[in-house]
Simulated assay, not measured.
Amino acid sequence: MPLTITVTGASGFVGSHLCEALVEAGHTVRAMTRHPDTYDGAGEAVYGDVSDAESLGPALDGADAAYYLVHSLDREDFESADAKAARDFSAAAAKAGVRRIVYLGGLGREDQDLSAHLRSRREVEKLLGGDGVPVTVLRAAIVVGHGGISWEITRQLVDHLPAMVVPYWTSTKTQPIALADAVAYLVGVLEPAEAEGRVFEIGGPDVLTYAQMMQRASQVIKNRPLPMLVVPLLTPRLSSHWLAFVTDVDTETARNLIDSMSNEVVVTDDSIKTVVRRRLLTYDEAVRAAMAERERALADASTD
């Protein structure tokens, strides 16, 4: 049945596509943004900022459910900032009578020494439910789609460099998922009773190393191989400066992402398939879809 839903991060990479999908599914979407005056996406723009606790009540008032899609990777103190935001959001959602929160978190086994980024994601999972609102968690690795930070790093490296000297973390396994599939899963867990309060792992059909992701992307995008030389002494700090130099990702975000790339992030529990059934795009198909959307965005920008 149609619901009223508040989506945080509505103008972001995943949030903008999620808002469109929810509206298409017949729901009333309240697109929470710090800049409602300039919001031009799907749904009704409402002011809200997770770092401003007083703004959350009005943004959540009357909502049946809420999606939590925000994080603070571009800040050095992102762990404390994200924890406070999650606590405030939990309290505001409970006070507003929200019946379900859906959170997009990160993959990674509990028996690993998780990076600060992934530890923060797990802490947010717990804090969002601290005031009693059931939280459904989807844990993902890289979401492949135009505009996603992790995907943009891959695309820009492939686009800018004919060959690469790469650090040891490029041999870590990951399980990327297409943006369309991630959004379908987010929409799919909104209403089923069996999804309430559960943690699901989501990923595409391909398990790849970061090096293989770049090599496959090079074949799809440029139809050529991407020679690589692994240099074990290239530290995360040096790697982050290298990424910031070669791509348009800022150094702080790059550092926080790279810290997580030493953790294997693959699906170990596919129970999501019993709740949401769909054919998942392969990595190559996801790359083609991302590039097609980028071309459309560039074409639209050139006509403005």
Results as ranks from 00 to 15, higher is better:
P2V: 03
A10H: 02
F13M: 11
V14L: 12
G15I: 08
G26M: 09
M32W: 11
Y39L: 07
G41I: 04
A42H: 01
V46R: 02
D49R: 12
A53W: 05
E54H: 13
V70M: 07
H71A: 05
F78K: 04
E79T: 11
S80L: 09
A81V: 15
A85Q: 05
D88Q: 04
A92D: 00
A94V: 02
V98I: 06
V102W: 00
G105P: 00
L107T: 01
G108C: 07
D111H: 10
R119L: 11
L127R: 08
E152G: 03
R155V: 06
P162T: 07
A163F: 13
V165C: 11
Y168E: 08
I177A: 01
V187N: 10
V189T: 05
V189Y: 03
L190E: 04
R198G: 09
R198Q: 15
G203Y: 05
G204L: 02
P205W: 10
T209G: 02
T209D: 06
T209Y: 06
Q212I: 02
V220S: 15
K222Y: 14
N223C: 12
P227H: 10
W242M: 15
D248W: 07
A254H: 01
L257Q: 05
V267T: 08
D269P: 09
D270P: 09
V276M: 01
R279E: 14
R279G: 09
T282M: 04
E285A: 08
A289N: 07
A289K: 04
A290R: 00
R294H: 15
R296Q: 15
L298V: 14
D300S: 14
